[in-house]
Amino acid sequence: MERKGSVIGLNAEKIAEYKRLHAAVWPDVLKMISACNIRNYSIFLKEPENLLFSYFEYHGSDFAADMAKMAADPTTQDWWAVCMPCQNPLSTRKEGEWWAEMEEVFHHD
């Protein structure tokens, strides 16, 4: 199992919409998340900075393949199309990232 954390900005005028969307995530999106071996997935919002922090645990054996499977799913693509306009990616993110990946520097079970 691998723990993943990432961060992205949230446009202030889209906070209510983003919360509304995530209060009722489309069932097929949730099924795809599970099919791609992601468990214990949470997104947290820090205001007034309007930062979203994402945490999940990956239980598969090929993260890149599972993320490609998710990205190829038409329903997930539609979901991202409604969520992405709410988000404001960090200027310091790495090439190819939307959400900026974070290094885990501490963990305690």
Rank of each mutant, 00 (worst) to 15 (best):
D28Q: 15
C83A: 08
A65F: 03
A100G: 13
V82F: 02
V25D: 06
G9D: 01
I8T: 07
L45P: 03
K31Q: 15
L90Q: 09
T92F: 02
L45T: 07
P48D: 07
K14Q: 12
A72M: 09
D73E: 12
K19T: 08
R39E: 11
V25G: 08
L10W: 00
A35Y: 00
G5C: 11
S34W: 04
L21T: 03
K69T: 13
H108I: 10
Q87A: 05
L51G: 04
M84V: 07
D73F: 03
R93C: 08
C86N: 02
W79K: 05
A71P: 05
E17N: 08
H107M: 10
E2N: 15
D78R: 15
T75D: 08
V82C: 00
L30G: 06
K14F: 03
K14Y: 02
K46C: 12
Y41Q: 14
S6P: 00
K31P: 01
V25E: 04
T75P: 01
A24N: 13
Y55H: 15
A81T: 09
S91G: 11
T92Y: 02
P89Q: 07
T75I: 14
R39W: 02
S34F: 02
D73M: 09
E95P: 06
F56W: 11
Q87S: 06
T92G: 06
R93V: 09
A35K: 10
G60R: 13
L10C: 09
L51S: 07
S42H: 12
S61K: 13
P89S: 10
M32I: 14
K19W: 00
D73T: 10
D78G: 04
K19C: 07
W79S: 03
K4G: 03
S91W: 02
F106W: 13
L90T: 06
E104N: 14
F63D: 04
Y18I: 02
A100E: 02
E13W: 06
A65C: 04
I8N: 01
M102K: 09
S54R: 13
G5S: 07
Y41F: 14
C83Y: 00
G60V: 05
N37M: 01
M70N: 09
S42E: 09
A16H: 11
L21P: 04
A71L: 08
R93F: 02
D66P: 12
F44Y: 15
P89H: 07
W80R: 15
F56P: 04
P48R: 15
F53S: 05
S34K: 12
L51N: 06
I43V: 15
A65H: 09
A68P: 08
P27D: 06
E97R: 02
T75L: 12
M67I: 10
F56G: 06
E103V: 10
P74G: 08
L52V: 11
F56Q: 11
M67K: 13
I8G: 00
M102H: 00
M1K: 08
